[in-house]
Write a protein that binds this DNA or RNA. Structure first.
Lengths: 132, 132
DNA sequence: CTAAATGATATCATCTTAGTATCATTTAGA
DNA sequence: TCTAAATGATACTAAGATGATATCATTTAG
Protein backbone atom coordinates (compact mmCIF):
# COMPACT_ATOMS: atom_id res chain seq x y z
CA UNK A 1 0.00 0.00 0.00
CA UNK A 2 1.48 3.23 -1.13
CA UNK A 3 -0.35 6.00 0.63
CA UNK A 4 2.43 8.49 -0.02
CA UNK A 5 4.30 7.94 -3.27
CA UNK A 6 7.91 8.67 -3.87
CA UNK A 7 7.13 11.83 -5.81
CA UNK A 8 5.11 13.20 -2.94
CA UNK A 9 7.75 12.21 -0.45
CA UNK A 10 10.55 13.85 -2.42
CA UNK A 11 8.43 16.93 -2.99
CA UNK A 12 7.77 17.28 0.71
CA UNK A 13 11.42 16.86 1.58
CA UNK A 14 12.40 19.44 -0.99
CA UNK A 15 9.77 21.91 0.13
CA UNK A 16 10.68 21.49 3.78
CA UNK A 17 14.29 22.22 2.90
CA UNK A 18 13.30 25.26 0.89
CA UNK A 19 11.04 26.57 3.61
CA UNK A 20 14.05 27.00 5.82
CA UNK A 21 15.77 29.30 3.33
CA UNK A 22 13.44 32.20 4.08
CA UNK A 23 12.73 33.17 0.52
CA UNK A 24 16.16 32.51 -0.90
CA UNK A 25 16.14 30.89 -4.33
CA UNK A 26 17.60 27.40 -4.49
CA UNK A 27 18.72 25.35 -7.46
CA UNK A 28 17.81 21.76 -8.11
CA UNK A 29 21.44 20.85 -7.57
CA UNK A 30 21.54 22.38 -4.14
CA UNK A 31 18.28 20.83 -2.98
CA UNK A 32 19.19 17.45 -4.39
CA UNK A 33 22.62 17.26 -2.83
CA UNK A 34 21.58 18.67 0.53
CA UNK A 35 18.48 16.55 0.70
CA UNK A 36 20.11 13.47 -0.81
CA UNK A 37 17.48 13.23 -3.51
CA UNK A 38 18.00 11.99 -7.09
CA UNK A 39 18.71 15.12 -9.11
CA UNK A 40 17.00 14.51 -12.43
CA UNK A 41 13.95 13.11 -10.75
CA UNK A 42 13.72 15.99 -8.32
CA UNK A 43 13.93 18.41 -11.17
CA UNK A 44 10.78 17.07 -12.76
CA UNK A 45 9.06 17.28 -9.41
CA UNK A 46 9.94 20.92 -8.89
CA UNK A 47 8.95 21.73 -12.45
CA UNK A 48 5.59 20.20 -11.74
CA UNK A 49 5.15 22.30 -8.62
CA UNK A 50 6.09 25.37 -10.61
CA UNK A 51 3.46 24.43 -13.17
CA UNK A 52 0.96 24.23 -10.33
CA UNK A 53 1.88 27.76 -9.28
CA UNK A 54 3.13 26.70 -5.91
CA UNK A 55 6.71 27.55 -6.77
CA UNK A 56 8.13 30.14 -9.08
CA UNK A 57 11.07 29.21 -11.24
CA UNK A 58 13.72 31.18 -12.94
CA UNK A 59 15.94 30.00 -15.76
CA UNK A 60 19.53 30.77 -16.50
CA UNK A 61 22.39 31.69 -14.28
CA UNK A 62 21.22 32.69 -10.81
CA UNK A 63 18.07 30.74 -11.64
CA UNK A 64 16.35 28.25 -9.41
CA UNK A 65 13.15 27.73 -7.50
CA UNK A 66 11.45 29.64 -4.75
CA UNK A 67 8.01 29.76 -3.17
CA UNK A 68 5.12 31.43 -4.91
CA UNK A 69 2.69 30.40 -2.21
CA UNK A 70 3.61 30.76 1.41
CA UNK A 71 4.80 27.53 3.08
CA UNK A 72 2.03 28.00 5.61
CA UNK A 73 -0.50 27.92 2.82
CA UNK A 74 0.67 24.65 1.26
CA UNK A 75 -0.94 21.62 2.81
CA UNK A 76 0.33 18.06 2.64
CA UNK A 77 -2.89 17.17 0.89
CA UNK A 78 -2.15 19.74 -1.82
CA UNK A 79 1.11 18.00 -2.62
CA UNK A 80 -0.49 14.59 -2.54
CA UNK A 81 -3.16 15.73 -4.95
CA UNK A 82 -0.59 17.06 -7.40
CA UNK A 83 1.34 13.82 -7.59
CA UNK A 84 -1.23 11.19 -6.74
CA UNK A 85 -4.53 12.68 -7.71
CA UNK A 86 -7.48 12.93 -5.38
CA UNK A 87 -7.14 11.14 -2.09
CA UNK A 88 -9.72 8.41 -2.37
CA UNK A 89 -9.47 5.23 -0.36
CA UNK A 90 -12.72 3.96 -1.82
CA UNK A 91 -11.89 2.72 -5.25
CA UNK A 92 -15.01 0.78 -6.04
CA UNK A 93 -14.54 -1.56 -8.95
CA UNK A 94 -17.99 -0.97 -10.29
CA UNK A 95 -17.91 2.75 -10.76
CA UNK A 96 -21.06 3.85 -12.49
CA UNK A 97 -22.76 0.49 -12.61
CA UNK A 98 -25.14 -0.46 -9.86
CA UNK A 99 -23.41 -2.59 -7.26
CA UNK A 100 -24.91 -6.08 -7.02
CA UNK A 101 -23.64 -6.40 -3.51
CA UNK A 102 -25.11 -4.29 -0.77
CA UNK A 103 -22.57 -5.64 1.68
CA UNK A 104 -19.62 -4.30 -0.25
CA UNK A 105 -21.44 -1.03 -0.79
CA UNK A 106 -21.93 -0.60 2.93
CA UNK A 107 -18.24 -1.23 3.39
CA UNK A 108 -17.56 1.39 0.79
CA UNK A 109 -19.65 3.90 2.69
CA UNK A 110 -17.66 3.15 5.81
CA UNK A 111 -14.37 3.61 4.03
CA UNK A 112 -15.67 6.85 2.59
CA UNK A 113 -16.19 8.23 6.04
CA UNK A 114 -12.77 7.03 7.10
CA UNK A 115 -11.39 8.81 4.05
CA UNK A 116 -12.92 12.10 5.15
CA UNK A 117 -11.31 11.75 8.53
CA UNK A 118 -7.92 11.08 6.99
CA UNK A 119 -8.16 14.12 4.75
CA UNK A 120 -9.32 16.31 7.59
CA UNK A 121 -6.28 15.31 9.62
CA UNK A 122 -3.81 15.80 6.77
CA UNK A 123 -5.33 19.15 5.92
CA UNK A 124 -4.04 20.44 9.21
CA UNK A 125 -0.44 19.89 8.21
CA UNK A 126 1.40 22.47 6.15
CA UNK A 127 4.93 22.74 4.84
CA UNK A 128 5.55 25.46 7.39
CA UNK A 129 4.49 23.27 10.26
CA UNK A 130 6.73 20.48 9.03
CA UNK A 131 9.69 22.82 8.62
CA UNK A 132 9.24 24.51 11.97
CA UNK B 1 -4.50 4.98 -4.56
CA UNK B 2 -5.49 1.39 -4.08
CA UNK B 3 -6.52 0.98 -0.49
CA UNK B 4 -8.49 -2.16 -1.24
CA UNK B 5 -7.05 -4.31 -4.01
CA UNK B 6 -9.03 -6.40 -6.42
CA UNK B 7 -8.15 -9.62 -4.60
CA UNK B 8 -9.48 -8.25 -1.35
CA UNK B 9 -12.58 -6.93 -3.03
CA UNK B 10 -13.33 -10.24 -4.72
CA UNK B 11 -12.61 -12.14 -1.54
CA UNK B 12 -15.05 -9.96 0.39
CA UNK B 13 -17.74 -10.36 -2.23
CA UNK B 14 -17.28 -14.12 -2.25
CA UNK B 15 -17.32 -14.38 1.54
CA UNK B 16 -20.40 -12.21 1.82
CA UNK B 17 -22.15 -14.47 -0.64
CA UNK B 18 -21.04 -17.56 1.24
CA UNK B 19 -22.10 -16.15 4.58
CA UNK B 20 -25.68 -16.15 3.38
CA UNK B 21 -25.60 -19.90 2.70
CA UNK B 22 -25.70 -20.80 6.38
CA UNK B 23 -22.96 -23.36 6.33
CA UNK B 24 -23.74 -24.89 2.97
CA UNK B 25 -20.70 -25.72 0.86
CA UNK B 26 -20.35 -23.78 -2.37
CA UNK B 27 -18.19 -24.45 -5.39
CA UNK B 28 -16.03 -21.88 -7.11
CA UNK B 29 -18.32 -22.14 -10.12
CA UNK B 30 -21.37 -21.22 -8.12
CA UNK B 31 -19.77 -18.31 -6.31
CA UNK B 32 -18.20 -16.99 -9.47
CA UNK B 33 -21.35 -17.07 -11.55
CA UNK B 34 -23.65 -15.74 -8.84
CA UNK B 35 -21.23 -13.06 -7.81
CA UNK B 36 -20.11 -12.25 -11.36
CA UNK B 37 -16.49 -12.79 -10.49
CA UNK B 38 -13.77 -14.17 -12.80
CA UNK B 39 -13.75 -17.91 -12.10
CA UNK B 40 -10.09 -18.90 -12.32
CA UNK B 41 -9.02 -15.84 -10.42
CA UNK B 42 -11.58 -16.41 -7.71
CA UNK B 43 -10.40 -19.95 -7.33
CA UNK B 44 -6.92 -18.86 -6.38
CA UNK B 45 -8.39 -16.43 -3.90
CA UNK B 46 -10.46 -19.07 -2.16
CA UNK B 47 -7.52 -21.44 -2.14
CA UNK B 48 -5.54 -18.77 -0.39
CA UNK B 49 -8.23 -18.29 2.23
CA UNK B 50 -8.32 -22.04 2.74
CA UNK B 51 -4.56 -21.99 3.23
CA UNK B 52 -5.08 -19.31 5.85
CA UNK B 53 -7.51 -21.57 7.68
CA UNK B 54 -10.40 -19.21 7.24
CA UNK B 55 -12.19 -21.54 4.87
CA UNK B 56 -12.17 -25.29 4.64
CA UNK B 57 -12.03 -26.89 1.24
CA UNK B 58 -12.99 -30.29 -0.05
CA UNK B 59 -11.89 -31.82 -3.30
CA UNK B 60 -13.76 -34.10 -5.63
CA UNK B 61 -17.41 -34.44 -6.40
CA UNK B 62 -19.55 -32.67 -3.79
CA UNK B 63 -16.44 -30.66 -3.00
CA UNK B 64 -16.25 -26.92 -2.56
CA UNK B 65 -15.57 -24.29 0.07
CA UNK B 66 -17.19 -23.49 3.37
CA UNK B 67 -16.30 -21.47 6.46
CA UNK B 68 -13.84 -22.77 8.98
CA UNK B 69 -14.04 -19.59 11.02
CA UNK B 70 -17.38 -17.99 11.78
CA UNK B 71 -18.28 -15.05 9.51
CA UNK B 72 -18.64 -12.97 12.63
CA UNK B 73 -15.04 -13.70 13.50
CA UNK B 74 -13.57 -12.66 10.16
CA UNK B 75 -12.76 -8.97 10.02
CA UNK B 76 -12.25 -6.89 6.92
CA UNK B 77 -8.75 -6.21 8.14
CA UNK B 78 -8.04 -9.94 8.23
CA UNK B 79 -8.85 -10.25 4.56
CA UNK B 80 -6.87 -7.15 3.69
CA UNK B 81 -3.86 -8.54 5.53
CA UNK B 82 -4.03 -11.82 3.64
CA UNK B 83 -4.01 -10.20 0.23
CA UNK B 84 -2.25 -6.92 0.81
CA UNK B 85 -0.06 -7.50 3.80
CA UNK B 86 -0.05 -5.31 6.85
CA UNK B 87 -2.08 -2.17 6.62
CA UNK B 88 0.54 0.52 6.77
CA UNK B 89 -0.06 3.96 5.39
CA UNK B 90 3.39 5.09 6.51
CA UNK B 91 5.82 3.65 4.03
CA UNK B 92 8.91 5.59 4.91
CA UNK B 93 11.53 5.43 2.20
CA UNK B 94 14.39 5.27 4.61
CA UNK B 95 13.45 2.24 6.61
CA UNK B 96 16.22 1.43 8.99
CA UNK B 97 18.44 4.37 8.19
CA UNK B 98 18.19 7.46 10.29
CA UNK B 99 15.94 10.01 8.66
CA UNK B 100 17.80 13.19 7.79
CA UNK B 101 14.59 15.11 7.82
CA UNK B 102 12.78 15.72 11.06
CA UNK B 103 9.91 17.32 9.20
CA UNK B 104 9.10 14.23 7.22
CA UNK B 105 9.47 12.12 10.31
CA UNK B 106 6.94 14.21 12.15
CA UNK B 107 4.59 13.75 9.22
CA UNK B 108 5.21 10.06 9.44
CA UNK B 109 4.24 10.06 13.07
CA UNK B 110 1.03 11.81 12.20
CA UNK B 111 0.21 9.33 9.47
CA UNK B 112 0.98 6.52 11.86
CA UNK B 113 -1.68 7.75 14.21
CA UNK B 114 -4.11 8.14 11.34
CA UNK B 115 -3.30 4.57 10.38
CA UNK B 116 -4.26 3.33 13.82
CA UNK B 117 -7.58 5.07 13.55
CA UNK B 118 -8.26 3.53 10.18
CA UNK B 119 -7.46 0.04 11.41
CA UNK B 120 -9.56 0.52 14.51
CA UNK B 121 -12.53 1.45 12.37
CA UNK B 122 -12.09 -1.41 9.92
CA UNK B 123 -11.64 -3.87 12.75
CA UNK B 124 -15.23 -3.27 13.70
CA UNK B 125 -16.48 -4.66 10.40
CA UNK B 126 -16.88 -8.40 9.96
CA UNK B 127 -18.12 -10.56 7.11
CA UNK B 128 -21.23 -11.22 9.14
CA UNK B 129 -22.00 -7.56 9.54
CA UNK B 130 -21.55 -7.00 5.81
CA UNK B 131 -23.77 -9.94 4.94
CA UNK B 132 -26.50 -9.00 7.40
C1' DC C 1 -13.28 -45.83 -13.94
C1' DT C 2 -14.70 -41.25 -14.58
C1' DA C 3 -16.43 -36.73 -14.02
C1' DA C 4 -16.10 -32.97 -11.01
C1' DA C 5 -13.94 -30.59 -7.79
C1' DT C 6 -9.75 -28.27 -5.48
C1' DG C 7 -4.17 -27.87 -5.13
C1' DA C 8 -0.35 -25.90 -7.01
C1' DT C 9 2.10 -23.43 -10.38
C1' DA C 10 3.63 -21.33 -14.57
C1' DT C 11 2.75 -17.93 -17.61
C1' DC C 12 1.20 -13.56 -19.70
C1' DA C 13 -0.27 -8.81 -20.59
C1' DT C 14 -0.81 -4.40 -18.83
C1' DC C 15 -0.05 -0.58 -15.83
C1' DT C 16 2.48 1.97 -12.51
C1' DT C 17 6.57 3.54 -10.56
C1' DA C 18 11.19 5.16 -10.31
C1' DG C 19 14.53 6.93 -12.66
C1' DT C 20 17.59 8.47 -16.77
C1' DA C 21 18.73 10.99 -20.93
C1' DT C 22 18.39 14.62 -24.08
C1' DC C 23 17.57 18.70 -26.43
C1' DA C 24 15.53 23.40 -26.17
C1' DT C 25 15.30 27.81 -23.97
C1' DT C 26 16.60 31.42 -20.92
C1' DT C 27 19.82 34.26 -18.34
C1' DA C 28 23.99 36.51 -16.24
C1' DG C 29 28.27 37.75 -16.84
C1' DA C 30 33.10 37.53 -18.82
C1' DT D 1 28.68 38.18 -28.31
C1' DC D 2 29.71 33.88 -26.40
C1' DT D 3 29.37 30.58 -22.86
C1' DA D 4 28.22 28.26 -18.75
C1' DA D 5 24.49 27.37 -15.83
C1' DA D 6 20.01 26.96 -15.00
C1' DT D 7 15.03 25.42 -15.97
C1' DG D 8 11.32 23.56 -19.69
C1' DA D 9 9.69 19.77 -21.93
C1' DT D 10 9.73 15.15 -23.35
C1' DA D 11 11.08 10.60 -24.64
C1' DC D 12 12.65 6.57 -22.97
C1' DT D 13 13.83 2.45 -20.02
C1' DA D 14 13.79 -1.06 -16.31
C1' DA D 15 11.55 -3.26 -12.71
C1' DG D 16 7.76 -4.52 -10.13
C1' DA D 17 2.84 -4.96 -9.12
C1' DT D 18 -1.52 -6.25 -10.68
C1' DG D 19 -5.13 -8.80 -12.90
C1' DA D 20 -6.01 -12.71 -15.18
C1' DT D 21 -5.48 -17.23 -17.68
C1' DA D 22 -3.87 -21.97 -18.47
C1' DT D 23 -2.41 -26.41 -17.12
C1' DC D 24 -1.46 -30.51 -14.81
C1' DA D 25 -1.90 -33.09 -10.39
C1' DT D 26 -4.76 -34.88 -6.82
C1' DT D 27 -8.88 -36.16 -4.54
C1' DT D 28 -13.57 -37.92 -4.20
C1' DA D 29 -18.43 -39.75 -5.04
C1' DG D 30 -20.85 -42.69 -7.49
Amino acid sequence: MRFVTRDTDYALRALIYMAKLKGRTATVDEIASKGKLPKVFLRRILQKLAGEKMLSSRKGKTGGFTFLLKPGDIKVTDIMRVFQGDIDLTNCLLKGKACPNKGVCSLRKKIKSINSTVIKELDKITIKSLAG
